[in-house]
């Protein structure tokens, strides 16, 4: 679809990322880039280290070795591996979670307003101006409400705006989480298995939302790059522009969907052919799990 935009400067650059937990190496010397105007998919069999890598990018883990740099369209650069999680979010990386994490007791709209916390916090002068009802804050809140409405419209949740988020149906919760992440006005949106648990119709809608995020300019004029982990291969192949394949913590393939699909290394990783003998027994034991994965049919 938009492979032509490959020329854009990298948004996220991952270089030689290694993450160890004690003796376990979850990511081993992984390097890749993600660009604005692209959907970059991170795939791999179970236990390949996708979520770990994700957590490094979004600041929930600090990588053992390696460099993660985020380059804004305006040229500012951030070194993510040195920042605590909330700083990374402030520097323009938003994320969703595999097991949805909404503020269940708050309303849908409040979820979206909380996402604009830092902007509003500044406007309210750390609550002091807000307490006395100064106009600067009222203006900022109005703008925040507009942005929230924009994204509510995009994910088609406007009529549910005043519902308690915890009472939404599952698919709507997934969409709300994406809208909430987008309300932080990120340059990079990271999605952890956004299609998990969705039915085919819902994952179709999800694909639409994601391509919209990729292609459209946000209300603030910036564009957002998308990085996603996904198991649903139909979604991956349909919408992603760039696929990175991990296996046993290493990158084994990187390219556009078609070339990755035909990469022998990828096929081997998913089908696990005749390498079992060389693998350490505890790893080999895991293989059937990746073989029975629904993915191979598509590849």
């Amino acid at each position: 679809m938009s492979v032509t935009e490959m020329t854009e400067t990298p948004l996220l650059t991952v270089e030689h990322l290694t993450m160890r937990f004690g003796g376990l190496v979850a990511n081993n010397d992984v390097s890749f880039v993600a660009r604005t105007g692209e959907i970059t998919a991170l795939i791999g069999p179970n236990g390949a280290g996708k979520t770990t890598l994700f957590n490094c990018v979004t600041g929930f883990y600090t990588p053992t070795v390696g460099r993660l740099s985020l380059r804004h369209p305006d040229g500012r650069e951030f070194l993510l591996e040195r920042m605590p999680g909330y700083r990374i979010a402030q520097s323009g990386v938003a994320r969703t979670f595999q097991n949805i994490r909404l503020f269940g007791g708050m309303s849908v709209l409040e979820n979206l307003i909380v996402a604009q916390h830092n902007k509003l916090m500044d406007a309210s002068g750390f609550a002091i101006a807000g307490l006395f009802g100064l106009p600067t804050y009222a203006k900022a809140e109005k703008a925040a409400l507009e942005l929230a409405k924009y994204w509510l419209e995009r994910v088609r949740l406007t009529e549910f705006a005043d519902w308690e988020a915890g009472n939404l149906p599952y698919g709507a919760q997934r969409r709300l989480e994406i809208a909430r992440a987008m309300c932080t006005e990120p340059v990079l949106l990271c999605l952890d298995e956004p299609a998990a648990g969705l039915n085919p119709r819902e994952s179709g809608e999800l694909a639409e939302i994601l391509t919209f995020i990729r292609d459209a300019r946000n209300p603030n004029g910036h564009r957002t790059g998308v990085l996603l982990i996904e198991h649903d291969m139909s979604v991956v192949m349909r919408i992603s522009d760039h696929v990175v394949v991990l296996d046993y913590g290493r990158k084994i393939s990187d390219g556009d969907p078609t070339s990755v699909k035909n990469d022998p290394a990828v096929i081997r990783a998913y089908l696990g052919e005749d390498e079992d003998a060389e693998l350490p027994p505890e790893v080999a034991g895991d293989l059937p799990a990746s073989v029975v994965h629904p993915a191979p049919k598509e590849i």
């Binding site: 979670f97 909380v114 916390h117």
Partner: peptide, 26 residues
């Protein structure tokens, strides 16, 4: 008043889910 301000909303968000709050830059 503070419940309607970002400060109060951030408190409630923290009560609901700390990790999600951090992921929003709080």
């Amino acid at each position: 008043r503070v419940r309607k301000l970002p400060l109060g909303r951030a408190w409630e968000a923290l009560r609901e889910d700390e990790i999600a709050s951090a992921s929003l830059g709080i």
